[in-house]
Amino acid sequence: MTETGSGTGGAAMTEKRGNTCWVQCPKCSAWHHVAPDLLRSTHVKMHCPSCHFEFFAAEAQAVIDP
C-alpha cells in the first residue's frame, strides 16, 4: 500500500498517537493528566485535583506515558 501522507516519515509521520500522560492518585485512585516535565520531576510533587494529595510520579498508583 502506498503512503499518501506528505513528508518523508511514511507511517511514522501519518499514524496518530496519543500525546497525554496520566497518573493515578495513590490515595483516592482518581486519574489526572500531567505534563511530561512534571512526570519526570524529582523535586516537584503532583497534586491530585480530586483529593488534594501530593505525590511524586514514583508513588503513583499507575502511570500512562504514551
Binding site: 497525554t20 493528566h33 505534563a35
Partner: peptide, 14 residues
C-alpha cells in the same frame, strides 16, 4: 490541570 482556551483541560505543569 486547567481549562484552556483550546476548549481542552490542559495538563498539570510545573
Amino acid at each position: 490541570p486547567f481549562g484552556e482556551y483550546t476548549g481542552y483541560l490542559g495538563p498539570q505543569m510545573i
